[in-house]
Simulated assay, not measured.
Amino acid sequence: MKIAVKTFQELNTQELYDLLQLRSEVFVVEQDCVYQDIDGKDLKALHIIGVKDDKIVAYTRCFAPGIYFEEAAIGRVVVPLEERKYGYGHDIMKASIKAISGHYDTQDIKLSGQEHLKKFYESHGFKQIGEGYLEDGIPHIAMVTA
């Protein structure tokens, strides 16, 4: 898998289409969750894109401190169902943490993760803060770098 880090302005139309299609495939269709994925925040995000054989197999979007949370943020962490057995989620998280450090000069990161992925995020140095909550009908937890 090759990883690219791009601002919204650096994305070409095919990349934008592919990443929006992947997010819809997983977050809307697979998880049966109707929500507004295209939320205007992509314009301010760094897009971390993992590609294998011309297909996006892992993706996140990252934000500078103060845009999404007080801390830098990672969101929309996604790997298509058929690619989850290869560890691409771990690769894209490492690349996202590195991108935040390099672009925003901070190690303080917050995310709103689906509760069932708690151990996954903990393996990347995150710890839960506060109680769980529902976001778009799915149990989530807030997590920050330890």
Rank of each mutant, 00 (worst) to 15 (best):
N12W: 10
K94Y: 10
I129S: 04
E71V: 00
V26Y: 09
F63V: 07
G66L: 10
E135N: 09
E71M: 06
A58C: 15
V5N: 04
Q21W: 13
V78C: 14
Y68C: 09
D37S: 08
F69K: 12
A142P: 00
A72C: 04
I49C: 01
D37T: 05
L22D: 05
K98L: 12
I97C: 03
A142E: 13
Q128W: 00
D53E: 15
N12I: 06
V5C: 12
A73Q: 02
G66F: 10
I141F: 00
L19T: 05
P80H: 11
Q36R: 14
P65W: 01
K127S: 11
H90W: 07
V5L: 07
H116R: 11
E82C: 11
G102S: 14
L43D: 12
L19V: 08
S96M: 09
D54V: 05
L16Y: 10
D54Y: 12
Q9G: 13
S24F: 13
F69T: 15
H140A: 00
F120W: 10
F27Q: 08
V5S: 06
R23L: 13
I56R: 05
V57K: 01
Q114H: 07
S123F: 00
A64G: 08
K118N: 00
L46D: 04
I38P: 06
A73E: 04
A45P: 01
S96L: 09
K85S: 15
M143E: 03
K127H: 12
F120H: 08
L111T: 02
T145V: 07
E71S: 13
Q128G: 03
L16R: 05
E30P: 07
G66V: 09
P80G: 11
M1Y: 04
K94T: 14
E122Y: 00
Q21L: 13
H47Y: 05
E15M: 09
D136I: 00
D42C: 08
E10W: 07
E131P: 03
D39W: 08
Q36F: 10
Y68A: 13
